[in-house]
Simulated scan of single mutants.
Amino acid sequence: MSDEGSTSADPRAGDAERDAILAAVTPVADGIAATFGSLCEVVVHDYRRPEQSVVAVAGSVTGRDVGGAMSEIGMGMLARGDAADDELNYLTRTQTGKLVKSSTMLLRDSAGAVFGAVCVNLDITAVQQVGTLIGELAGVSVPAEVPTTTFGAAADVVDAVVSSVVDAHQLEHSRPWSELDRAARVALFRGLDERGVFTVRRAVPQVAARLGISRASAYSYLAKARAQGPEAAGPATSQGASA
């Protein structure tokens, strides 16, 4: 993240402050995970390096490791910058089927700039299974589906978000990319941008490969989407949050 707006004349001072906050938060993460036990995981992110944002992990729920990339919700927060808000008590599902209740609390420096986050993940799979059983016995309907989230390398996360947005967009229009008009293609790139896809390095080539277009075309559509601004977005670009 940029140090623009920092009260310090030396940009290195801003990084030093952020490094100190991350160092102070790490033992807190260990304490939270130890308090809630084996079903809890706490992940500390440094958004200054999106492709390797995970700087500390306590516990194991999503299989994260230090040096891993941020998830989809982190990409979205990075895209919103300092205007982003905490995301609390949302549900997602891992690729292995675990149902996870999560909260993502942003880290800000003394100037109010977002530079990282602390994410608490609770594996509530067993709780959900018991709840479903009780619901069936009581005649209550089973909860709605929860979106699956990709945790892992940056390339995997970008691919998952790209596929989600592209598939939803093409379903909305009932047409593949090759049959979309220019306005619909620009809207698709706006949706990807709003999900934070392009905050990750080398995301544009990945998107271009997924759509079967040249990098130059991908950059052109992205520039057009950003020039039009978010007010031009239609319902096809609206996406729910996923961890």
Rank of each mutant, 00 (worst) to 15 (best):
T26M: 14
S102D: 11
V142P: 08
S38Y: 00
Y219W: 06
N89M: 09
G67Q: 06
A241W: 07
C119K: 00
G68H: 10
V166L: 04
D109W: 05
D156N: 04
P235M: 10
R190Q: 14
E136Y: 07
L106Y: 00
A84P: 01
T35G: 08
Q95A: 15
A183R: 10
V100K: 03
F151E: 03
G196Q: 05
E41H: 09
D82V: 06
L88D: 11
A138Q: 13
C40N: 10
S163C: 03
V130R: 11
R48Q: 09
A84M: 01
A218Y: 04
L188F: 10
I134Q: 14
E145Q: 04
V25S: 02
A29I: 02
S174K: 12
S217V: 05
R48A: 08
R108S: 13
R49H: 06
R93P: 13
R210T: 14
G37A: 08
G5C: 00
A236N: 07
T94L: 07
M70E: 02
R185S: 07
A241V: 10
V157Y: 03
R182Q: 09
I134F: 15
L188A: 11
T104K: 03
R12F: 02
I21H: 05
L39A: 12
S103P: 11
A111R: 04
R93V: 14
M105N: 09
D86F: 02
D30L: 03
A227M: 07
A69H: 08
G67L: 13
G229L: 08
P143G: 07
A126R: 14
L39G: 02
R185W: 03
I124F: 13
A9D: 13
G191K: 04
K101S: 10
F151R: 00
S141H: 10
T199H: 03
S164Q: 10
I124E: 08
V61S: 04
L99E: 10
V186W: 07
P230H: 06
P176K: 01
S164K: 14
D3V: 15
H45M: 09
V44G: 06
Y219I: 08
Q170V: 02
S178C: 02
S103C: 11
I32G: 03
D82R: 13
G116C: 09
L99Q: 13
T35M: 10
G67V: 09
V166F: 08
V157T: 05
R93K: 14
P235S: 15
S178H: 01
G63Y: 02
S71H: 13
D30F: 09
S164F: 05
D193R: 06
L122P: 00
V200I: 14
A84T: 00
G229A: 02
G196Y: 03
V66Y: 12
Y90K: 11
V43I: 15
G240W: 05
A24T: 09
Q52F: 08
G229V: 04
S217L: 12
S38H: 07
T125G: 00
P50G: 06
T7Y: 09
T96N: 01
A243I: 10
T237H: 01
